[in-house]
């Protein structure tokens, strides 16, 4: 695919197009970063206030963490780009094992 680009007589135009495209992508990354900072601040404030019931706050901050990790994987680690099918298969398999392990340790195992 890249060899075609090298032979492309209109290399400069392609280069300019790519620069613009990656600058756009970088803008999305910065917005993602701002959202992650926002979610973190919300989680710390929610716990810092201390007025919410435990039954509400634990699922709430866990949800914020999951959203944040999604941003991290799909934007910062570029998993939303092409060619990440197999990596995401690995990661989701790991997430299933992780979930079952944690679930087992907090429910059916006791000390």
């Amino acid at each position: 695919m890249e060899n075609e680009q090298v032979k492309n007589p209109n290399l400069r135009a392609h280069h300019d197009y790519r620069r613009k495209k990656s600058a756009k992508e970088m803008q999305v990354q910065v917005i993602t970063f701002a959202l992650m900072i926002f979610l973190t601040i919300v989680a710390f404030i929610a716990v810092g206030i201390g007025d919410f019931s435990v039954k509400f706050i634990i699922p709430f901050i866990l949800l914020l963490a999951v959203i944040q990790v999604g941003f991290q994987l799909y934007y910062f680690m570029h998993a939303s780009q092409k060619g990440h099918e197999l990596p995401m298969f690995f990661m989701y398999s790991a997430v299933i094992i992780a979930f079952v392990t944690v679930l087992a340790f907090v429910t059916i195992i006791w000390w």
Partner: peptide, 26 residues
């Protein structure tokens, strides 16, 4: 490298899951 590293990260996820599970239990 790209594919192998993602496989490694999946393994690391499981490693940290076991440590999180132990922490939560104890």
């Amino acid at each position: 490298k790209f594919l192998g590293f993602w496989l490694f990260l999946a393994g690391e996820t499981v490693l940290f899951a076991s440590l999180f599970a132990t922490y939560l239990a104890l």
